[in-house]
Design a protein around this nucleic acid. Sequence first.
DNA 1: ATGATCCACAACCATATGGTAGTGGATTTT
DNA 2: AAAATCCACTACCATATGGTTGTGGATCAT
Lengths: 117, 117
Amino acid sequence: MVVDHLGTTFAALSDPTRRAMIERLSRGPASVHGLTEPFALSQQMISKHIAYLVRARIVIKTRRGRESVCTLRPEAIKTVSDWAISYRQFWEESFDKLDAVVNRMKSEVSNDKKHGQ
Amino acid sequence: MVVDHLGTTFAALSDPTRRAMIERLSRGPASVHGLTEPFALSQQMISKHIAYLVRARIVIKTRRGRESVCTLRPEAIKTVSDWAISYRQFWEESFDKLDAVVNRMKSEVSNDKKHGQ
DNA sequence: ATGATCCACAACCATATGGTAGTGGATTTT
DNA sequence: AAAATCCACTACCATATGGTTGTGGATCAT
């Protein structure tokens, strides 16, 4: 079976801890230890989350001495953006329709005012 | 605990069947039966997937006679887009840096050519 | 060399999810 | 009224995930 890259990406993003880690990494690479500190989670759990991000190709891990440095892959997040933007036309149309409805309601209201009830 | 809306949204998007259902619904509302046909999955399973999408507030279900009509909520997908776009600055900077590296490599290559090896 | 630090691996548990099969309730259709 | 259609509910199973504890291997500092 073909691997569902986008699927594993979304799955990786479904956890708030991992999204926070991404936010942290967007401000520069960090070691596993550096990622553990802010999160009140065990080091083992952080390693698991990182493994998940690595599997989803969102993060790259490189060994430097006794540290593992994690780096964010910008392409990964762009992939998500591209997916969502592919529906841009749909949601803009929907919002336009909503606008139209609102406007019609407004004019009906002013109509009511003119004609009384 | 506070509900992690974005998290359940991403989780809902992690399944290829559900993403295909979203693609289908972006072209207009459909009944459960209408959503079952293209997917070679049992009706029960499709109902489960729809329930997942409803829980993530991506889809709204309305009963009409014996049918349940599913409609896509455009705001839900816009949420995903907004999340990804919040990292736009990060990835554009990264791509710029990559460009810089590539350019430096190019100039080094032309340098090698000039000086021989 | 010894201890401390950073990290990975394994075993284990509870829960959620993807999937099946079976059933029964409404609503249309005939 | 009877049959067919559309859908939801339940029970059940295998697997993946979030989380824990325990441990051991490298690497750095003293």
